[in-house]
C-alpha cells in the first residue's frame, strides 16, 4: 500500500513540467526515505535525479520499496487537472497496475480522482559517486534561464568558464558571437540575487544549449540554481526544493577530438 499526501500539489505539477520534455517514461521509486526518480534522456547525454523526502509530505505511507513506471507526459497531463493550491494524494495498492491521483481543493468541497495506468520500464540505474567539484556557481535561477534562452538564439553550444571573479557564458553561431559575464557579487542584503563562486580550480567546459534550456523548466521550483563543474565529470545543475529535496540534472560535456 502506498499513500503519499502532499499539501502543496502545485509543487508536484512543477516537478513534472520540469522533467516531461527531457524524459518520456521513467520509474518512480518509493521507499521510506522518499519519492525519487533517476532517468536519462533518450540519447543518454543528460540525466535527471529527483528526490522528494518523506518528511516533506503531510502523510507518507510506503509499506515496501516499490518502483512504478510512468509516462511523464501522461502524468503531467493528469496533474494539470489539479489546481495549484490543491492537495494531491498519490495512491497505489500492492501489485496494482494503476496509480490514483486524488486532488482536493483548499475548501475541501471538490475531490477528484484520476487513475493512470503504470508501465513496465526497463531502465538502468547509474551509480553517481559523490564528487568534489572544481568550480561551483550559485546564481539566481531566473538569470541562468534567461542566459540559456538568450544564447540559444545565437548558437547551439555554450562555453562556460569559471574563474574567481565570475562565470562567463560564450557562444558563437552563423550570425556572430555572444559573451555574458556574471561577476561574483558581494552584497549581503539580498542573498537570492547573489552570484556566489566557490572555486578550487578554474574550469571551462562546452555544453549543448538545447539540454540546458530543457533543465531551466525547473526554474519555478527554486530562486537559486547551483552549477557544479569539473573537467572530467558531467556538470550538475541543482534546483533545491525547499523542505522536500531537489531536482538535479547531469549533462555530459562536449569532448574535444
Amino acid at each position: 500500500m502506498l499513500e503519499l499526501r502532499l499539501l502543496q500539489g502545485g509543487l508536484l505539477k512543477k516537478v513534472l513540467e520540469a522533467m516531461k520534455d527531457l524524459v518520456n517514461d521513467a520509474n518512480f521509486d518509493c521507499s521510506p526515505t522518499g519519492f525519487s526518480l533517476q532517468a536519462m534522456d533518450s540519447s543518454h547525454v543528460a540525466l535527471v535525479s529527483l528526490l522528494l523526502r518523506s518528511e516533506g509530505f503531510e502523510h507518507y505511507r510506503c509499506d515496501r520499496n516499490v518502483s512504478m513506471g510512468m509516462n511523464l507526459n501522461n502524468m503531467a497531463k493528469m496533474l494539470r487537472c489539479a489546481g495549484n493550491d490543491d492537495i494531491v494524494t498519490l495512491k497505489a495498492d500492492d501489485g496494482s497496475d494503476c496509480i490514483t491521483f486524488m486532488f482536493e481543493n483548499p475548501s475541501q468541497d471538490k475531490i477528484a480522482d484520476f487513475e493512470m495506468k503504470l508501465m513496465d520500464i526497463d531502465s538502468e540505474h547509474l551509480g553517481i559517486p559523490d564528487a568534489e567539484y572544481q568550480s561551483i556557481v550559485r546564481m539566481p535561477a531566473a538569470e541562468f534561464a534567461r542566459i540559456c534562452r538568450d544564447l540559444s538564439t545565437i548558437g547551439d553550444t555554450v562555453l562556460i568558464s569559471v574563474s574567481k571573479e565570475g562565470v562567463q557564458f560564450s557562444t558563437r553561431g552563423d550570425m556572430g558571437t555572444a559573451n555574458i559575464v556574471c561577476r561574483r557579487t558581494t552584497t549581503v542584503d539580498k542573498p537570492e540575487e547573489d552570484v556566489i563562486i566557490e572555486m578550487e580550480e578554474p574550469v571551462s567546459l562546452t555544453f549543448a544549449l538545447r539540454y540546458l534550456n530543457s533543465f531551466t523548466k525547473a526554474t519555478p521550483l527554486a530562486t537559486q540554481v547551483t552549477i557544479s563543474m569539473s573537467s572530467d565529470l558531467p556538470m550538475v545543475i541543482e534546483y533545491r526544493i525547499e523542505g522536500m529535496g531537489y531536482i538535479r540534472y547531469y549533462l555530459a560535456p562536449k569532448i574535444d577530438e
Partner: peptide, 14 residues
C-alpha cells in the same frame, strides 16, 4: 571539432 559525451562514459550502472 568536438563530440557529445554520454552519461555511461562517466557513471557506471549499478
Amino acid at each position: 571539432k568536438s563530440s557529445q559525451g554520454r552519461m555511461e562514459s562517466f557513471f557506471k550502472p549499478v
